[in-house]
Design a protein around this nucleic acid. Structure first.
Lengths: 330, 330
DNA sequence: ATGAAAGCGCTAACAT
DNA sequence: ATGTTAGCGCTTTCAT
């Protein structure tokens, strides 16, 4: 039937015919079968999303899905897996369903990328978010943890702080996200000059860790007046210790966390924290994916998304007493 | 070709033939086309997931996807929408892709359910999680907020508390989740007897609200020795006020939050909180869905999932000093 | 502007 | 145990 023409709207159809078709469709409860269309066109307008469903990436999922919908795409979802072969299986499921492309977002601790290289070489459009592999050819998005940590410390130095500490994580942590935060901190110190020794407390990254690490750090380096934590949880632990030691925040010790989870605005005092462009990463990632499937001029292949500092009471950099203030971390 | 038999494995194939087929497939880089199979069988082994990507439901997504994978199903994901007609559109997209069933999980503030009734009447397998609509016929999962709130208060009463308060939310809040928590609190007081007057502070449900509401409540009812909050954020705000007023937690005032987000274990002192069976809801929801598609005996249609109390320092019910302890809220 | 024919890749049913 | 035929619902191409 040339009812197809009516629904695709590509070729011209007489108005009267169109109406006849539409009313008939209505009456019969007709619904276009996307499967048949996909089979014929070998184009499914379906994308694969391999992403950890969790607090962290939820915003990215939303962003990606929103952009996909705008372009007429829908996502097939699967959870990632640490072991590359298991992940491979899941991707295979998606490929049997003939996804047009793949958006992958795993923790920054993924180390095997061989199967991604294979995917790319087979010509599958592929975009990764926060995946630390070399430039194999597919498009990648990153968050600028290093720059963010560095900028926060620099702001403190500019505000007159002379001893800035870091708590949580370890320099050899499996997650690059953690390592970069430490590197950024150290970079700022290095650039400040030799007069500024590091004051580091490494270990876990949960509130109890933050509590213990901060206590030990302050014993070793009593002169610390500002403390950057590897994440909000660690920072919340630091706040506990500071309170117990009767150090005021931010007057005696300023504190900044990382990630700006709900922990930050719930803390006492409200915790200033570095916030990343998570929603944006999903949007851009999906846009890039669509751009690889449909004709598009853009050829950018790697992008590092900026983070900002959400200033609340804890950091001693606030302009206003209440509320939040966003500072760029260029 | 009867290569199909090799891959489906249903009918018997000679071992030599199987091997010939498999090696040929290997050589040609053959990958079964799930679309064609779906088209032929009019069964896609694909399910629709309409769910808010966010901290709250992430665990449910994981649970659902895990069960789906075990049964050979994959999820198409779409974000829900408050307006029923917009949501309808998104569901229509999924239906054109011929999903075998639909798992829906929205906030408890969805009020229009007409399109769900239509779906069910068309025979679409459908399971909702946390959606407060009457029993139309499809399967529904709920969390037992009312019972949980009631049980926490009862435990306090049993422990000797004589004035238990509630902060956050309003009795006419659009989210039934909020209303149920308040109802549970009131139920416990009612059952305790007339000697136990309510001590309620209603309003918002963020840390700043918790802070203000708690201060006002303690002024009105100074005798309150235990405080249940509508969620963790509000509870965190309550902790701020209690500290400022120099009331010790839990010695002077015990506090319990709701939802057991990371805010709870990050608080000072660590916040005891009601935790719901989110992961389990996703698993059961998906299992039910599959059960409607494939032959299954089970005919349970509505289930209320239990919550537990995660006991940390803040609530005065702890047996051990450190760590977490799980108490059932039957 | 419309219709007819063929085929996307698979599987159910029926031969052999 | 294997091959043959037909058709799932659509779009592409070619004819009218």
């Amino acid at each position: 039937m040339t009812a197809s023409r009516v629904f695709t709207g590509k070729s011209p159809v007489a108005t009267t015919t169109r109406e006849r078709v539409l009313t008939a469709a209505q009456r019969l409860g007709y619904r276009p079968n996307h499967l048949a269309r996909s089979l014929r066109q070998s184009q499914t307008r379906t994308l694969g999303m391999v992403i950890t469903a969790g607090m962290w990436y939820a915003q990215a999922m939303r962003g990606a899905e929103e952009i996909a919908r705008e372009h007429g795409y829908t996502f097939l979802y699967t959870h990632p897996h640490n072991r590359a072969d298991r992940e491979q299986e899941r991707i295979e499921t998606l490929r049997q369903r003939r996804v047009d492309g793949l958006l992958m977002m795993s923790g920054s601790d993924a180390h095997e990328h061989g199967h991604l290289r294979a995917l790319h070489q087979e010509g599958i459009p592929l975009v990764t978010i926060n995946r630390y592999c070399e430039d194999i050819g597919f498009r990648r998005l990153f968050f600028d943890y290093r720059q963010a940590a560095c900028s926060v410390v620099q702001r403190w130095l500019a505000a007159g702080h002379r001893r800035v500490g870091f708590v949580g994580g370890t320099p050899d942590h499996p997650q690059q996200a953690v390592r970069e935060r430490i590197e950024g901190y150290r970079k700022a110190l290095r650039e400040a000059g030799a007069w500024m020794p590091a004051a580091e407390g490494f270990g876990g990254a949960f509130p109890d860790d933050g509590e213990a690490l901060t206590e030990a750090l302050l014993r070793r380096c009593p002169g610390v007046t500002a403390l950057l934590a590897v994440n909000d949880y660690t920072a919340a632990g630091a706040l506990r210790t500071l309170r117990r030691l009767q150090r005021r925040v931010p007057e005696d010790v300023a504190v900044v966390g990382f990630d700006d989870t709900p922990v930050a605005f719930s803390a006492d005092p409200p915790l200033s924290a570095v916030r990343h462009s998570i929603l944006e990463s999903g949007r851009i990632g999906c846009r890039w994916l669509v751009g690889q499937i449909e004709p598009w001029e853009e050829d950018e292949r790697t992008r590092v998304l900026p983070s900002v500092l959400v200033v609340r009471r804890s950091c001693g950099l606030a302009v206003e007493e209440r509320g939040e203030q966003i500072l760029p971390l260029g």
